[in-house]
Amino acid sequence: MGPKSILKSPAVPSDAVDARKPPVNEQHLQVALQHANIIQDQKNVEQEILNATLELLEFPPDSKADPARPSPSDAHKFKTLVMPFQPNDYDALIEERNCADLCGYALCPRPRKKVPSASKLHFVDSRDRGVQIVPKKVLEVWCSDDCARRALYVKVQLNEEPAWMRRTGGGHEIEVLVENAETLEFALPLRLKSKKEVQQGELKDGDGEDIAAAWALADEALAELSQERGDKDSNIRTELIKAKIEERTNFKTPSAPSAETTASSAHMAIEGHIPRTDAKKTKDVDDDDDENDWDD
């Protein structure tokens, strides 16, 4: 066969290419799609966070809402919106709310505290840490210390991992610091101990049924959620590496190394490797060269 041309071969039968290429392309396509999906997912999450921030900027809808006892619907909405946040996104939200002259805690409708003096630094006398010098900006973030506590209570629960890398999808449930514990549970009534109690009629029949129905609904929702987290994988998670194990079947029984093959050329070995040389051919060439050299 002649020297291989560096130019593209002009006429390759098309069906031959088709037959050979797809497996290669398939792999490439999979890899490309995987990465494209990751980037797209990242963008989607960022957009989602931005939209959530925009919404939380004008939160809560009711201007008389009490941050200590948020209405269950507000609290629920806040929790779901804040779920994909990372702590620094949450910081950004607080900053945005401050820009809009609101308390940093998203469930608080009050304006932020204004320090009367114009100086940049302030003395703050706290009991446990003594007198500290604090920048004015830090003092003006919240409407009160309680709101600061509530907001930071949410912040420490946020997942540091970006939402698109989280295995469980959105993230885990976030709790809101609430004064009365009942509202914490989405205003769900106390769970009945067992069916027996209902039958025994400790409670009024109608009440018992209502409570049971409410809890059944909640359980259903939770089950759905867990299923979503466990089973329903987004297309990103599709594994490129197959977990199927294939056994290699055609084993040869190993044979002991024979001394003859190695012994003859053992002295030629370079770190265990014996270079293969076509001894006769090289000798001929050498001879020719030598003769020519001597002639000259």
Partner: peptide, 11 residues
């Protein structure tokens, strides 16, 4: 005129 410009002002 605002000292800090955030989402709200930009929007």
């Amino acid at each position: 005129g605002d000292e800090n410009v955030g989402l709200k002002q930009l929007r």
